[in-house]
Design a protein around this nucleic acid. Structure first.
Lengths: 119, 119
DNA sequence: CGATGACATCGACATCTGTCAATATTTACG
DNA sequence: CGTAAATATTGACAGATGTCGATGTCATCG
């Protein structure tokens, strides 16, 4: 009972807009994209994303992730939730363990928006 | 007296790392990259970046930017400072006016880090 | 020089955020 | 069923962040 996140499908969210350098974002577009960047804009969450995304099999168990940090288990759980709520991580429970997988499409689209690449 | 930002050259900062999905960021790398994302992770600053980056001539005067928002002039000035301190905007004073220009190289490199692109 | 306009800085305030300890929830195993 | 292990949720708290009004700084124009 804390849906609280009307954030659309992250891919759709970010696929909304032309690259930053192409044309100005509208206020609405900016409001949709900013939460994704906010979710990424933390050192711990950046590392979590890279750990999951680069992990063998494309997924990582929370148990693996906890050990990679000097932070409490609830704190890691919190960060994973933030990334998941933003649509950047997918969650799958298997037995007692929970596996997270990077939503690579969202990352790619986000990169396309930031990058001046498209020229 | 508020240098307070030992953030390296933003390009070097971000060029430090392989794409997220390639290999895990170190704590140090994450600490370097996160501030750049944090600077971008605000709706107003996203719009400012896109306004500047997509503006004719590649630069925009603060006077133009103020008019695009329903925010006070100090608030816009604050956001521009955040983007400038992060190394995402370059500042140039010409006469009474101040022009900002997007550091496109930083954006491109940042996008390359986020994107799963490199495959 | 005095006034005006463009932009930055300061100080204050409410809100958001990262962290932890404690506790709840869920699953597996005897 | 009772216990143990993995993960999530809750509540609390210090510190960061976005915003504003007031004020400062600096270049330009009479």
């Amino acid at each position: 009972m804390s849906k609280s996140l009307p954030v659309l499908d992250p891919v759709a969210t970010v696929a909304c807009c032309a690259p930053l350098a192409r044309e100005p974002l509208t206020a609405g577009q900016a409001d949709q994209v900013a939460p994704l960047l906010k979710a990424l804009a933390d050192p711990v969450r950046l590392r979590l994303m890279s750990l999951v995304a680069s992990h063998e099999g494309g997924e990582a168990c929370v148990c693996d992730l906890n050990d990679a940090f000097d932070l409490s288990q609830p704190t890691i759980s919190h960060h994973l939730k933030v990334l998941h709520d933003a649509g950047l991580l997918e969650r799958e429970k298997r037995g007692v363990w929970v596996y997270y997988r990077a939503h690579t499409e969202a990352l790619t689209t986000l990169a396309a928006l930031i990058g001046t690449t498209a020229r």
